[in-house]
């Protein structure tokens, strides 16, 4: 007898997360590394490396980040890389899948991803998936926590920040906003700011990411942030407390403005309820004090209440999986 497995996927710019109906949770970097030359190909014995494996061997690889801007880059290599990532993630999640078993998947994409980029995902996955559902990432987050009443989902990813206004029914286009102010933007801003103050220091995207994830904050006050960086190979301690705060505010300010705009254009009778139900998800929700910062930005509107979601990494994929499991069979048949 064949089985039908259900999978929810959050295809992210930096990380892709997957949750299956068999209880698996897998997360990997959304990148593929191709050997630079014949020597590296011989060393790895493979045509490509994926995720963290690729990142750890990046010096010998040509790295492809297929979702660098939040959506699939439409060049051939990026499309191929996205297919490889999804195929391997699914194979890893369902190692015992039999030939006659079926896989039904819901994939979360940015709220305002183009029709073309959604079609690309369908095209590259139809050879190894039986049913594919494309859903909004922010809506997946709302679905995972069963919040369909008046609330505002703010999903801060690496490539995009998705905002989705929920009001008890399917969100319309005007209820959703996608911003390009997200994790990658913050990385660039931090890099520039550090190099401006300490032009000699050696930085890589991985160093910046580590600094951001460990020390990123938007409080008014903070413990001094001292990091060890190298200048021409010599390690030294650098104080980046002020730099980091200024940079993080450059990310949270446009997000706060987008929140204010979505609230201001909502039914006035429900604006207060919306202000008091702001849910922050995604990797960006780990910035220390981001909930307080958003609440402060709403003070002139009468205040608000923001909270960061607990399972920031998997909430999108779990929401997508929940949709799959709760979907009636005849609905699937329509796809």
């Amino acid at each position: 007898m064949s089985n039908t497995f259900y999978i929810g996927i959050d295809l992210g710019t930096s990380r892709s997360c997957l949750a299956t109906s068999t209880g698996k949770r897998i997360s990997t970097r959304t990148c593929v590394g191709y050997p630079k030359d014949i020597i590296s190909q011989k060393r790895f014995g493979k045509d490509y490396l994926l995720g963290d494996d690729a990142l750890n061997n990046r010096l010998a690889l040509n790295m492809i980040w297929p979702l660098a801007d939040g959506i699939i880059c439409e060049d051939k290599k990026s499309i191929e890389a996205t297919g490889l990532i999804l195929k391997h993630l699914i194979a890893e999640a369902l190692p015992e899948k039999q030939a006659d078993d079926k896989i039904y998947v819901a994939i979360g994409v940015p709220a305002q991803a183009s029709i073309n980029s959604k079609k690309v995902i369908i095209d590259i996955t139809k050879s190894f998936l039986d049913k594919i559902l494309i859903v909004s990432e922010a809506f997946s987050v709302a679905y995972s926590i069963d919040r369909f009443d008046e609330c505002l989902i703010v999903d801060i990813g690496a490539g995009t920040t998705d905002l989705c206004r929920m009001h008890g029914s399917m969100p319309e286009e005007e209820d959703q906003v996608t911003l390009n102010f997200a994790g990658n933007f913050l990385d660039n801003v931090i890099t520039q700011a550090i190099l401006e103050k300490f032009p000699e220091v050696q930085l890589t995207p991985q160093i910046i990411r580590r600094i951001k994830e460990k020390h990123g904050y938007v409080y008014d006050v903070s413990e001094p942030v001292q990091v060890t960086l190298t200048t021409q190979g010599l390690p030294a301690e650098y104080d980046i407390t002020d730099i980091l705060k200024e940079c993080c505010l450059k990310l949270t300010n446009p997000i706060s403005q987008a929140i204010q705009k979505l609230i201001a254009t909502f039914d006035p009778d429900f604006q207060k309820k919306l202000r008091n139900n702001i849910i922050i998800a995604g990797g960006g929700s780990r910035l220390k004090g981001i909930d307080i910062s958003i609440e402060k930005s709403l003070e002139k509107y009468g205040g608000g209440d923001a909270e960061c979601i607990q399972d920031a990494e998997f909430c999108g994929s779990i929401g997508a999986l929940k949709m799959c499991i709760e979907m009636p069979d005849d609905y699937w048949e329509e796809i």
């Binding site: 089985n3 039908t4 497995f5 259900y6 109906s21 068999t22 209880g23 369902l94 190692p95 015992e96 899948k97 039999q98 078993d101 594919i132 559902l133 494309i134 859903v135 369909f148 008890g168 029914s169 399917m170 949709m323 499991i325 709760e326 979907m327 009636p328 069979d329 609905y331 699937w332 329509e334 796809i335």
Partner: peptide, 27 residues
């Protein structure tokens, strides 16, 4: 995998069903 596979729990919530129907229609 087949032993631990979670069985389908079709929602009976009418608003959820309406939203899922809309998602399918969009797809």
């Amino acid at each position: 995998d087949s032993l631990i596979n979670e069985s389908v729990k079709v929602t009976k919530n009418s608003s959820k069903l309406a939203m899922l129907k809309q998602i399918v229609a969009d797809n």
